[in-house]
Design a protein around this nucleic acid. Structure first.
Lengths: 131, 131
DNA sequence: CTAGCGTACAACCAAATGGTTTCACATCAA
DNA sequence: TTGATGTGAAACCATTTGGTTGTACGCTAG
């Protein structure tokens, strides 16, 4: 497997869309698909246009679709896009697991290159400076 | 159990760090943890400082850690952070699945309350200049 | 010790982001 | 028809991002 993802730009858009609290909240609210953009907008302390932009970002990432209902647009989250994002993370994890398996497999025949095995690595050496 | 993640800002940082092809590639290269920042930088068509900034973004998101080896800094990806991101996606998916189950189960006795009060939903509306 | 490498950080710049207000256009209700 | 409502898109602004170059500093090699 390790499906090497085709389009990196689409993944960029996907993760970028997920990288905002408001947008993730919109996704959560729209699993039912019965909220219009304006109903959605009423739930947030920002303008209608701002929420509309968030929805547009989600739409271009494939994370939601819109369905007309009269003059309203009902927003519906697309679980397949979420699955695509998860697949990318799974690929990373698989890579990591592969590394572990390979390490334990080669441990016998790779007799300790002086500083190859870090052993216990400490967690979070320090907090990076504010940028 | 749908662990409602505590810090939204940390998830923002996580997904933002993942939303760049170069950074995802760095993550892939650093599963083995034996590459220094300058070795890493040699692999990309940009300056050392640019790669260093990418590493900093990954570090602040918790996706990599650095380990000093002499005068070099070896970069190591942290699979636990990847798991955190995946957990967030799983929560979304669970929500979606729950919706399907609930719909087929409760369709008879839940006659569509038109609009749930927007104000009562906890949303954590981005306190302060967090962005 | 001195030279050089690897790293960190600052200053700077163009472009993108996230927000605002405003205007235009459909569509529904009366 | 008239008017209110829902949506979309533009212009604009402040801040962030992603890149550059330059400089300072720690560590290792000779």
């Amino acid at each position: 497997m390790v499906s090497h993802q085709g389009d990196s730009g689409s993944l960029d858009r996907l993760f970028h869309a997920l990288a905002d609290t408001t947008r993730r909240d919109i996704l959560r609210r729209c699993v039912h698909g019965d909220l219009s953009v304006s109903q959605l907008a009423a739930a947030y302390p920002m303008s209608f246009a701002a929420v509309q932009k968030h929805v547009t970002v989600l739409e271009r990432a494939g994370l939601v679709s819109k369905r007309r209902h009269g003059r309203e647009q009902l927003v519906l989250t697309e679980p397949e896009a979420v699955a695509r994002a998860r697949q990318a993370l799974d690929d990373l994890d698989t890579l990591w697991r592969g590394r572990v398996a390979r390490m334990s497999g080669l441990l016998a025949q790779e007799p300790q290159h002086p500083r190859t095995n870090p052993g216990t690595h400490e967690h979070r050496p320090k907090e990076g400076p504010e940028r």
